[in-house]
Amino acid sequence: MEGVRGSLFAGPALLYTLLFFAVPFAVMAYVSLTPSTGSGGAGLSFANYAAFFERSYFLGAMANSLVVTAIVTVVSILLAYPFAVVLAEVVPERWQRLALALAVLPFWTSYVVRSYSWLLVLSSNGVINKALTGIGLLSEPLDLANSRLATVIGFTHFFVMLLTLTIYANLKQLPPSFRKAAADLGAGPVRTFVHVTLPLTLPGIMTGAFLTFVLCIGDFITPQILGGNNELLMPQLIMLQVGRRADFPMASALSILLMIVVTIAYFACARWLRLERSR
């Protein structure tokens, strides 16, 4: 009886996953095996996947996506961790909610508007270049906008907040007695951080890093607006297949390959978290 009730409760979620994930995914996997538009092929094959490995600009897009995502994830962690520590341990308890609300403020604005705002800030006539040339530090404006750097800045602005939340939650769960015990045993603040705080907050870092990885590698808007089409990332390449060539089979194959990368990242992250818990 308990089992039946459990199934009934899980039913809606299962149905939702089946309808809105499993079925579309199966359709996409099938379409990815059909001939690419204009290829003149027939029947099902792995030709679209083979084409991915044969064309340097396809591989280049995957490499660009992985590099940009790795940079964004690392920089976001480096910026988010001290921010989360300040929020959890320096800001008085009564101000923490307000500080958290301020921290998530960027989530409240439109993603597109935020990207265009960064374009205005980073452009040749933008705030940064105007300030630097105005005070005489530069004679010529820097090429900040329409570049990989601009894409990384746009992404990092967003994901620092996400990582701050996951690390903050982890820090708040940490019993203060652990650090007191380390101090009693003679460890200084640096040693306590390296040997106690940091290892215990790694699950928060890893969870945030995985979310950053997934959201960053699949994002089209930020590189499209801030990158100036100076290099292609996988989502842009997929959009080119759909928007310019109506080539759904190739777009599906590229999407599946991107999903495989995300799945590998997930299993690596999940395995690491399991190993951490079993220690």
Partner: peptide, 17 residues
């Protein structure tokens, strides 16, 4: 032609990349 168009789009993708 559709074949040449596909090749021109490939060139454009390379140009973007």
């Amino acid at each position: 032609s559709p074949e040449l168009d596909a090749k021109m789009q490939d060139v454009w993708t390379e140009f973007l990349q």
